[in-house]
């Protein structure tokens, strides 16, 4: 609706010759609504982006000052950059075996997380729904869940290696078993908290169980589910690095371990920053997805 209006404004502005000194002022005045919106957006973005940038810069300076002395056990940021320049600027090389660019390592890790986490999301929501819906399922399963969820992820690895006799499925299993608990528990809480009113509506309208699940349960419990899914993705990214250190092969976890074995401390630091950034992005992705899906659910 506002498109034609903006167009006429733009063409009206374009008419006066640009050489006149004054038009700069009139232009901003005339295009006020649009320019103002941009200015506000820029301001808001700056307010969010500038403070962390300053903090990071300060930390880098302090780190540089501390680690620049001779005999320091860790490299300063300048040296890290110099050592890892090739890895940063060429993430796609592939010399066979595990001698690959960081892109390949990260994508291998992300792939394992994708498999394990997707399975966990499906199983977690299904089991959570069962436990939330049925009192007997809760009585039977909840104590079991409470015990199993306290087992550290890596403690599952030897057992899964014994069961699967292969690194890849074992790593995926570790991701699954790590991230499934918060999804189950939060989904169950969400299902249990569905207001009786919604159940009554469903009963009067005579929704069948499948319709009740898709039309009432999922949307009503979605905010809780996404809390669980968000915790789950964080945990699975935590677990993959540790698991890969043990199973070896291509993957960011083993890359770090390999770098340590060859005393390439700078590479470890680079890999850690990638792991952190990707973990952050994954968390934001799930949070953003949750925001879109649960729009309107929370407000009543």
């Amino acid at each position: 609706m506002s498109m034609p209006a903006m167009k006429t404004e733009v063409s009206a502005v374009a008419i006066p010759p640009a050489t006149v000194a004054a038009p700069v002022v009139t232009m901003t005045l005339k295009r006020a609504p649009r320019a103002e919106a941009y200015a506000r957006m820029a301001k808001e973005t700056a307010a969010r982006v500038v403070p962390p940038l300053i903090v990071v810069a300060l930390l880098l300076v302090v780190w540089e000052l501390i680690c620049r002395r001779a005999g320091s056990s860790l490299p300063p940021p300048s040296k890290v950059f110099k050592d890892t320049k090739e890895l940063i600027f060429d993430p796609f090389f592939d010399h066979g075996g595990i001698d690959k660019g960081l892109f390949w390592h990260l994508s291998a890790s992300l792939q394992r997380v994708a498999y394990g986490y997707s399975l966990a999301a499906i199983a977690g929501i299904a089991l959570g729904t069962l436990v939330g819906q049925s009192v007997w399922a809760m009585r039977g399963l909840d104590p079991l869940f409470q015990v199993l969820r306290t087992i550290p992820p890596l403690a599952w690895l030897p057992l899964s290696l014994a069961a699967f006799r292969d690194g890849q499925p074992s790593a995926i299993f570790v991701i699954f078993i790590t991230s499934v608990w918060p999804i189950i528990i939060n989904t169950a809480v969400g299902i249990r908290n569905i207001p009786q009113d919604y159940r009554n509506v469903a009963a009067v309208v005579q929704l069948n169980p499948l319709e009740f699940f898709t039309k009432i349960m999922i949307p009503a419990a979605a905010p809780y589910m996404f809390t669980g899914l968000r915790i789950g993705i964080g945990l699975s990214w935590l677990a993959i690095v540790a698991a890969e250190m043990l199973i070896g092969g291509v993957g960011i976890g083993f890359f770090i371990w390999d770098a340590w074995n060859s005393s390439h401390i700078s590479e470890i630091i680079l890999a850690l920053s990638y792991v952190g950034i990707i973990g952050f992005v994954l968390d934001r992705l799930i949070a953003g997805l949750g925001k879109i899906v649960t729009r309107g659910t929370a407000a009543n």
Binding site: D197, Y198, N200, V201, V204, V205, Q206, K215, I216, P219, A220, T294, R295, G296, T297, A298, A299, N300
Partner: peptide
């Protein structure tokens, strides 16, 4: 069943 439709006190509309 829908042959005895209810208007609930707190409207009970589905917010999504």
């Amino acid at each position: 069943g829908p042959d005895r439709a209810v208007v609930f006190q707190n409207h009970s509309l589905l917010p999504w």
